[in-house]
Amino acid sequence: MPELGTRAPREPLLEVKGLKVKYGAIEALKGVELSVGVGEVVALIGANGAGKTSTLRAVSGMVKPVAGSITLRGQSVVGLKANELVPKGMAHAPEGRGIFPNLTVRENLELGAYLRNDGAGIADDAARCFKFFPVLAERQKQMAGTLSGGEQQMLAISRAMMSRPKLLLLDEPSLGLAPQVTQIIFRILREVNAQGMSILLVEQNAHLALGLCHWAYVLETGEMVMSGTGEKLLASEEVRKAYLGE
């Protein structure tokens, strides 16, 4: 697999090797390799059906891989269920947001901190989310189902952050959102990362993802075909043709 640019030395947080996922007879992932270092933003880009979401779902325990290893901070986490990964420091904001529509914004955030019982810390973190997304503070007593798409995405990200994860998995945070809202969300992601949270990001919008990440992988039909720094990939002829429509 060609690598464009050099990756800064890093302390490994997540290591994925030889990951295979099958849906019935269909092989969605044919041995995916990737790693996320502490403090890094890593993006997965690729066309529809390339296996981006499958990779994320396998990492977060929502589908069971048929082969491969996944280690989080040196500890194997293959076969653990999604709810068992949360206490190990992983949080997943699933595709399509998955907020709780009939609970208030605040209740959604509190459920994000479901496994914690430090009341003061939870309140602090909620306040931090409200600082990131002031619109959520205005709507904290409103049912989450009444929020706009962008606000729901902000809530989904905030809720995932409420468990104080070491690694945040984001699936298509820009899906169906206005460009302006997407800009806000990516600005916040940059800020969250600057405060030390590592992020594994799946994104259709290659431009945005490559602009944010420290390192990116390009997936094609269940395999990694290329990796590199966001800058180098953005400049590469192949990527421009295939994913940026230029």
Binding site: M62, A82, V86, A91, G98, F100, L111
Partner: peptide, 24 residues
């Protein structure tokens, strides 16, 4: 209670509840 919260979360969205760490 916390139990009740978990139940509500399951009612609302089971996948998301699991992603929150709820043993559904």
């Amino acid at each position: 209670s916390t139990h009740g919260r978990a139940l509500w979360a399951i009612r609302e969205d089971e996948v998301a509840a699991e992603a929150m760490g709820v043993d559904t």
